[in-house]
Design a protein around this nucleic acid. Structure first.
Length: 836
RNA sequence: GCGGAUGUGGUGAAAUGGUAGACACGCAAGAUUUAGGUUCUUGUGACUAAGAGUCGUGGGGGUUCGAGUCCCUUCAUCCGCACCA
């Protein structure tokens, strides 16, 4: 191999198998002390076809951590798998022909190869694919456990309904109020769906956030806290005057203290009273229909007028004897929150105020303030009977006690969190293993319930509905004709426990508790911030639920969490507004950018790499041109892992040049080592100084800083190469190769094999070099001299020199007579600040 | 509207309250003539003719011998949630 050019292609070929091979057995895990086990988890990818830069960055961070911890002597668990159910496979099959299973498995095969090419140290024997029955059959067992424990249930709930595709859509699949595939305006529809009782864990999920403080990003904790949305208040029951309706309307309020200012009660169009009225009252039914078609996009909500219709009904005021309040149906009252009904105090609530103005309802101020209405702040109660004179907090306590005494209400905590609707009318998902029998009701099916392969895609609705031989079965209880559940599970169900299955992917039971309780929690989970609420909340919930069902004892899924930033690239548009690939752009010379065929191009913003905006860089392409090591090094250089990474192709060339530089210097150094050249030994101390700092940056996963220090260390070696002894250079390179290895394993391995002449252990079984702390501390320091806090010069001196000595040196440097300073502040080994 | 974060050179970024801009990218000048994408040296925050001068971490205050860092205030940008009773 040439001494000047690092032949990455040859080296990648030579060490590919060595670097991609890794496996840790469960015996080894069980024999390892719990605190010497390190579980690195990257959120498992959806097999979309090709790896993108976001994957490369995500898995690179995990790989560096895994390799570093391995060298530190940990038993590192570092698995990978595929989140392989979901709509894209089904859609691809419809659009391109073929079968979702084939499409998915082809993609997995391709992406697995790409991961191996990048030398990610994955424990391949632990690989899972969620669309494989080996995985989803165990998931069905968990589902049935949840069913038995009353954690899953069927209920009618309002869901996003696509009237063209005839299916329920997840919230994420509704874009600007329209179905992402059909483009139809999504309706709210009340249908029977399977749900998970995640709300019964609301308090535990909220409390659990405390244990994660500091280890999970504050932002994520805050987002989960807001999502759970605990609010304390009261339920107040308003007795209905009219007959033939429920005896009362219950409302939830966080401001029971404003009850004396109540002016009306408003119920949701989906409230049972509204529903009943709609059957006989045309005005009401028209309004209810109108509300149902309401768009739920942000802009629509912002512009939307507060509207309502009077029901003709009245309720009794629970506290003010003899007073009655009109009942309205209002478009701003949500059935999903609280009780689907509110009482309105227009003086102290903005929405109520707007509504009351519009329909000329009474507005009574009950809190003293000079501010204009509506006033939502604190203050002394007025016009409020026995609450008069109290502030808001005291009035709340007082009124709740009173309501409880007279039986008209009670204290109540409400959550924004709703039960998780888990059923999907989709083929490519885990079948819900139950059977509907006319006689026996819902009956558990024998498991596994396998997805049928012979399926007709592309028809409207769920293909499983149309698969007669699969759908129609005999009831396992009574033997009568029965119908299989044709809904499948939300794919978030799969991604809520995969990290437990990795620990024993072949186990006959879903979770091998012995291994799980020994190896869990995951020490670090690395993934995108987009899962801050969904996946990361579901995973936390699953741990609590699995604990309660006796599957394991551990409660926390991920001890720490790193949310890596997005990989961004500048995007470009031509003058017609079409996106243009960055590769197709050249400079016209006058600063103007043009496409290859001469069209003018405008620079847009740095934004997340996406196919639709064409601002993508194909990892495969740059691996071919720059080599795996260059790509690995580049993707973690310069930007902290949690920040967005702005792609810069010129900087990638710089990384490539660095590796060539390393190679050249190594060859020079190697000949000095073998010749045992005489010279200085200063590099030994330098080495330990850098080793100490580099180890600390790896430890805190400040990978951009680790890279900066490694480069600084290398520059130091390069500078001193000619003057140092062979022995000293050998010490430096021994450490340099090892600190480089987690990032660029190929070149590190090549250098190592040359240095050890193949006679020593492979680099990946080597342990991390230990810092000699005595050597790491230099014996001279540079002292900064300041006058009134401003730098005026520096001097070198022995470490730990006394204050008097430093003071004298500083005065001399400045040419000041002793005693001329008003005050002198000395910080040992750092600074002398002279105040005049 | 509520919540969160971030503002440092041309760019990505460093800095336990203690020498701001480490490490890179880019750019400029010079050397070598390398033909594999070179390599090497020097310079590169702004201002100033120049300096060992002045200014400089979004703006304005404050605490301190000393503030990018702590406190108050303000502006801007980004992200999340949102008719939540």
């Amino acid at each position: 191999m040439s001494d000047n050019i690092y032949n990455f292609r040859a080296v990648e070929k030579k060490w590919g198998d060595v670097l991609a091979g890794y496996a840790i057995s469960n015996d080894e895990i069980m024999c390892t002390n719990k605190d010497k086990i390190y579980y690195v988890l990257e959120m498992l990818p959806y097999p979309s076809g090709k790896l993108h830069m976001g994957h490369v960055r995500n898995y690179m961070i995990g790989d560096v951590v895994a390799r570093f911890k391995r060298m530190l002597g940990f038993t590192v668990i570092h698995p990978i798998g595929w989140d392989s159910f979901g709509m894209p496979a089904e859609n691809a099959a419809i659009q391109e022909g073929g079968h979702p299973k084939a499409w998915t498995n082809d993609n997995i095969a391709n992406m697995r190869q790409e991961l191996q090419k990048l030398a990610y140290m994955y424990d391949w024997p632990r690989e899972i694919s969620t669309c494989n029955s080996k995985y989803y059959a165990k998931e069905q067992e968990i589902f049935l456990s949840m069913f038995k424990h009353g954690l899953v249930y069927r209920k009618k709930s309002y869901v996003n309904w696509d009237p063209v595709d005839q299916t329920v859509l997840a919230n994420e699949q509704v874009i600007d109020g329209r179905g992402w595939r059909s483009g139809a305006i999504v309706e709210k529809k009340l249908i029977e769906q399977w749900s998970i009782r995640i709300t019964s864990y609301a308090d535990e999920l909220l409390d659990g956030l405390k244990d994660l403080t500091g280890a999970w990003p504050d932002k994520v904790l805050k987002m989960q806290e807001n999502w759970i949305g605990k609010s304390d208040g009261a339920i107040i029951n308003f007795e209905l005057e009219q007959q033939h309706y429920p005896s009362h309307i219950s409302v939830f309020t966080t401001r029971p203290d404003t009850i004396f200012g109540a002016s009306f009660v408003a119920i949701s169009p989906d409230h049972e009273v509204a529903q009943k009225l709609a059957k006989t009252n045309k005005l009401v039914s028209n309004f209810v229909d109108e509300c149902r078609k309401m768009k739920t996009t942000e802009e629509a909500l912002e512009k939307m007028e507060k509207k309502g219709v009077f029901t003709g009904l009245y309720v009794k005021h629970p506290v003010k004897n003899g007073e009655r309040l009109p009942v309205y149906i209002a478009n701003f009252v949500l059935i999903e929150y609280g009780t689907g009904a509110v009482f309105a105090c227009p003086a102290h609530d903005e929405r109520d105020f707007e509504f009351a103005k519009k329909y000329e309802l009474s507005i009574t101020r009950v809190i003293k303030s000079d501010a204009p209405l509506p006033y939502t702040g604190d203050g002394e109660h007025i016009n409020s009977g026995f609450l008069n004179g109290l502030d808001v907090a005291d009035a709340k306590l007082s009124i709740i006690a009173y309501l409880e005494k007279i039986g008209a209400g009670q204290r109540q905590t409400t959550y924004r969190l709703r039960d998780w609707t888990i059923s999907r009318q989709r083929y490519w998902g885990c079948p819900i293993p139950v059977i509907h029998c006319q006689k026996c009701g819902i009956v558990q099916s024998e498991i596994p319930v396998l997805l049928p392969d012979d399926i007709e895609l592309g028809c409207s609705g769920n293909p499983l509905e149309n698969h007669r031989s699969w759908k129609f079965v005999k009831c396992p209880k009574c033997g009568d004709d029965a119908v299989r559940e044709t809904d499948t599970l939300d794919t978030f169900f799969e991604s809520s426990w995969y990290f437990l299955r990795y620990l024993d992917p072949e186990s006959t039971i879903p979770i091998n508790q012995k291994v799980a309780d020994h190896a869990m929690p995951v020490d670090i989970c690395i993934g995108g911030i987009e899962h801050a609420v969904l996946h990361l909340l579901y995973a936390r919930f699953f741990m609590f639920a699995l604990r309660d069902m006796g599957y394991l004892k551990t409660e926390i899924p991920f001890k720490s969490l790193l949310t890596q930033g997005m990989v961004c690239h500048k995007s470009y548009k031509d003058l017609d507004g079409n996106w243009v690939y960055p590769d197709d752009i050249t400079s016209a010379g006058d600063g103007q950018l043009i496409t290859k065929d001469g069209k003018k191009v405008l620079e847009c913003a740095f934004e997340k790499m996406s196919k639709s905006k064409k601002n993508i860089v194909n990892p495969q392409k740059i691996i071919d041109s720059h080599g795996v090591d260059a790509v690995r090094l580049f993707i973690i250089s310069d930007t902290p892992p949690e920040k967005d990474f702005d792609w810069n192709t010129a900087a990638l060339d710089g990384t490539w040049r660095f590796l060539n530089h390393v190679w050249r210097v190594f060859n020079k150094a190697f000949s000095r080592i073998t010749q045992q050249s005489p010279g200085n030994e200063t590099l030994v101390a330098t080495t330990h100084r850098f080793l100490k700092k580099i180890t600390a940056t790896y430890e805190s996963i400040s990978l951009n800083k680790a890279v900066a220090l490694i480069r600084e260390f290398f520059n130091e070696i390069d500078d001193k190469l000619e003057s140092e002894s062979g022995a000293s250079i050998s010490v430096a390179f021994n450490v340099f190769v090892k600190v480089l290895y987690p990032i660029t394993p190929y070149i590190a391995h090549e250098m190592w094999s040359i240095m050890t002449a193949g006679g020593s252990t492979p680099l990946q079984s080597e342990s991390w070099p230990e810092t000699d702390t005595k050597l790491a501390e230099s014996d001279t320091v540079t002292i900064a001299v300041q006058v009134n806090g401003k730098l005026r010069g520096t001097f070198e001196i022995c470490k730990d020199a006394g204050d008097i000595v430093l003071e004298g040196e500083a005065m001399e440097l400045l040419g000041l007579a002793s005693g001329s300073a008003r005050r002198i502040v000395v910080v040992p080994n750092r600074i002398v600040n002279i105040v005049i």
